[in-house]
Every structure is written in structure tokens, then in C-alpha cells.
Nucleic acid binder design. Sequence first.
DNA 1: GTATTTGTCTCGC
DNA 2: GTCAGACGAATTCGG
DNA 3: CCGAATTCGTCTGACGCGAGACAAATAC
Length: 609
Amino acid sequence: MKEFAALYLELDATTRTLDKIAALKRYLQKSEPADAAWAVFFLTGRTLPKVVGSGRLRQWAAQEAGIEPWLFQECYDAVGDLAETIALILPPPTQRREEPLRWWVETMLEPLRDRDEEEKCRAVIEAWRSLDASERFVWNKLLTGAFRVGVARRLVVRALAETLAIAPDVMEHRLMGPWRPEPEFFTRLTQTEGEEAQTAARVRPYPFCLAHALETASALLASPLGRNDPVGLIQAALGPVDQWVAEWKWDGIRGQWIKRQGVHALWTRGEELVTDRYPELAAIADRLPDGLVLDGELLPWRDNRPLAFGVLQTRIGRKHVTKSVLKTAPVIFLAFDLLEWDGEDWRERPLEQRRARLAEVVARVDRAELLRLSPQVEASSWEELALRRAEARQHGAEGLMLKRRGSPYRVGRVKGDWWKWKVDPLTIDAVLVAAQRGSGKRASLYSDQTFAVWDDQGRLVPIAKAYSGLDDHELKEVDAWIRAHARESFGPVRSVEPVLVFELGFEGLQRSSRHKSGVATRFPRILRWRRDKRPEQADNLATLLALLPPEPASPTKAGPVSQTRARVENQPRPALARSRSRIAPPVVRPLFNLDDPEQVEGTEPPRSS
DNA sequence: GTATTTGTCTCGC
DNA sequence: GTCAGACGAATTCGG
DNA sequence: CCGAATTCGTCTGACGCGAGACAAATAC
């Protein structure tokens, strides 16, 4: 435990990736295999079932430290991380105990799951009294079940790969799927032969190939050439269009469907085995040939087209799949790649070869109600493809995927062969009305901001929260402004004078009770600070409501995504949207009367009907 | 003592 | 999913 | 030609939305 805690401190102390890898390698080499295996388990993002809720932990920690709950809460707010707060606040250890990581996990932590509350409390406090501050932090992280700190999976994989002299991509593959940290773990990673290894490999998925965004929007802003000729920009970046295969970018769940040794398995991108969550697919599993791995998208589907993502969401975390859910949210597997055929790894083969074989497989299975081939989007020029992209929402898609002809199926998010070319986001101008402090490195900043638009009563109604999109400098500026113009406090939330205007971008809109406006945005973010606009010039709720997807027969779930843009912009955007120096600071005006509709009439009339 | 609401967590995008 | 920032490696620039 | 400056790719951490599961708190 001491060594593992020291490793954590080392990882936390630097942002340099090479230093992190060096520290990881040192740890892996000097530790007992059983401890190192657990370290890999946690550092690659795996978790044990949670044994104690954070509420209980807070309570026990405050008790043990001898402080009032409110004071503990204050400390927590300041620190921003529960495990760290507890580690810092407790008195020094009284019964120091040095045991390896494996002992703490296997002897102290895992057995707790079946114990009652009182015993858990005793064990947790005993551990706290036995560990020093940094060890406690690790222990707390293990308790809360989330050790996503300091290093991401990829660096651990690199360190492990270098330690065992295995290619990182191969290592990535071997770490996929189910495994338990045991002393033999490392020998199993190096030796793929043997019955045990074969069993483990039976349902093991391949690492997913992920795409990068084709950043047309920012490229347009950055390049004067691009603003006049976006298609030319793409041509310059990607070359001739005939070297690319285009498909729709579907709005479902990425999945890998495996059939090996008579058994089928469905994995999500988050490495969740979800075979039982989608039992309808089992109906055609026996029609799949053995030694097959498909990559594709799990989609809610009816009448020859996808349903909204919200429909699928009702099935994501669901444990009991009822008949009625199968009816309201029927899914299909839309396949777009073939990773394994006849037990052979096909990832190195060119895309077209994989696709051709995939098409044959899908045709032979011949159950279009459950398995389909994701169609190619044909175009003979980038101009034509750009037009097809604009139709994406009509097809229930988010845009296009571009894949280089002849490319292999790669590991992870590698630039060059796969691009996602999403449709442009919807935009709206909204007023900052409230803010809250962030957490972690943003714990001291009012970085968590709520934005509102005008309703027909002339009131500002919240529509979204967003933080991302401002750079550090702007964030600091806004933070200072918020502190100077705060009004009331509602717990940690402070309302502010409605003065600052920001342009928000988002992917879609749906009815929701989350915000007072009755709508919520998907993937909201700040596009730019509209220092040139006064709050009265922000958009109206009516403008926004006009974007809601047409109400389906039952008003429960979201329909297809809207096809309109939030606002028609007659003029090109300022090229220097993010420049701070050229635009005059906003004129601070006296507060206007929120109840007077005259004063809140926007300069841009709502476009609704 | 049971029913309902509220909060927290974990998935997915 | 979104985004900005930090870092390291690769590439270009300038003397 | 070599060191400095710049660009590019990757990695990290801080966050949005909804739904369901589960536990805790509250209402009846």
C-alpha cells in the first residue's frame, strides 16, 4: 500500500507523460505481481463493486475527525474531492499498519460487501487509523469505487507494454474483456497459449477504433480561405473524395458483436458486456457464423429508420427487460465493420475487403429486422458530400463518418483514417443568470454557469448549464465579474445580475423538467462571449421552442432531432470571435426591469412560425 | 410501518 | 458526448 | 547546418444531458 500510495503521489506530482510512464514502470518492476496486478486493475479504470456510499463515508469521517457535518462540508467544498478531504481531515494514524495493496483489497475491502453497516463502519475506521494520509487517500478511492485519478488508461498500457516488451496495441487488446488481478496475471499477459488463456479470449472484444472530429467550424473561423471555400479546405486536408468511404454517423450505442465457439457476446465501447440487455439479438445469434466479430451501432429502429436516442436511453441501464420495453424501444444492430472472420483477426486488412465480407455475412444472415449493413453514402465530389451531410438529420443521423479506403482497423483514437463530420451545432444567445463553484482544479472558480433566455412574460428562464468553451483567461474574468455582481445564494448556487451574454452551441433540444424553461439542450457549450450584446438582445424561449422536434403521438419521449438551425445568420461571424482586445468591454447598464416586456424585447425577432 | 420523494451513482451519448 | 490546456515529438524557420 | 520557434497529435481533467437502480430521507 505504501508503494502504491507513493506511486499515486508521483503520478499526481507531474503532468509530464514520460515521467508518469517512468514511475509506472518502476512500480511494476519492483512490486509483487499480485500487487502490481491490482494496480493495473485500478489504474486502467476498473472498479470493484462499491461497498460504502459517499454519504456514509462523509458521516463517519466527520465523526472520526471530531468535527461538525457543516464544517466537513465546507472542507469538502474547498478541496473538491471526497477521498482527499477525508485523508486530510483525519487525525494521524494511531495503529500504523503496513500491508501490501493486495492485502488491503482482498482482506479488508472485498469481504466488506456482505457485512452490515456497523461492521463496515468499524472496518473503515480501523483502516483510517492504520494508514497515513496518502495511503488513506488511496484507500478512500478504493472504497468509493472510483480510482480515475492521475493517469489515464493509455499511459498505464504503455508502461505495461514497455515493461513486458509487448506492442502497446497488442497489450491494449489483451487488457480488454474480463480478467481478475491474480499473481499469474502477468505471465498470462505474455503467454497467449494454454487453455486458460483461450477461455479468457473467447468473449474478449477488440479495442475500438475511434474517430477524430473534422473541425470545419474552427477551421472556417481560423482561415480566411476556408471561410469562402470550406469544401476546398477539406479537399486540401483529406485529398480526393474517391479515396474515402462515407457512412452516416448514427446516434446509438457503439457495439461489438462477437460469436465464438457457439457463444455470442455484445460489448459496448465502455467495455460493458450487455448481451443480456438486448435479448432480441439472441434470436439470430445462431445464424451468425462462428469466429466472427462485428463492429457497429446498436440503434432503436422502427419503420425503416432510427428512433431518437432518448428511446434507446430507456434501455441502457435497465436490468429487467420487460416486454413493453422491447416493444417501445426495439433495437437492431447496424453493422459497419468486420474485425474477425473464421476465427482470424481481419483488422489489418483494407477497409473495403472487410466491408465486402461484412456485406456477405449480413446478406447470408438475412434478418433485416435485427441485423443490417450500414449503407454507404455515395458522392462524387466533396461538394456533393457536403450536401448529403446537410441531410443527415433527415436520416436520423448526426452527420457523416469518413473512412479512408484501404485503411486498417486501428486501435483507439488515431488521427488520419477515420473522421466524424457532424452537422453544425444549433446556436443561441443566452444570458448568464447563476453560477456555482467547480470542483478539482476549478474549485475556486465560479466555472459552473447557468444560462437563460426570455420567456413571453419577459422573465429569464434557464435552459442550460455549461462551462466549456471559455479559455482560462476568460473564465477568470467571468469569475471575477460573478463575484462582483452576485445577488442571492441558494446553497452553493449564486444568482447574478443578468447582464453577460454568451452564444451557446448545442446538438439538439428536448422537453425536460431539468430547467424552468421546460427544455434542455444536448451537449451545451459556450461558443463565444458576446461582449457586443446586451441582455435584452438575447434570444427568446419561443425561438428555442420552435426547434423542438414535432411532438409525437405520445408526448413522453423525444422525437427525431430538429432539422432547423436556431438562428439564420445573414452575416458571416466575426473571424476573431475569441479575440479579447478588439471588442470594447460591455457597457455596464443599470439593471432593467425584468417585469417590463418592453425592455426585454430582443433585437432579433423570434423566427417561430 | 409503509409509500413516496430525493439524492447519488453509473451507464450511454 | 463537449472543450481548453499541457506536453512531447516532428517539422519548419532563421541566422 | 544547427538551435529556436512553431505545429501537430495525444493525453488529461473539467464538465453537459437523460434514464434506471438503489439507498436515504421524508411524508402519510
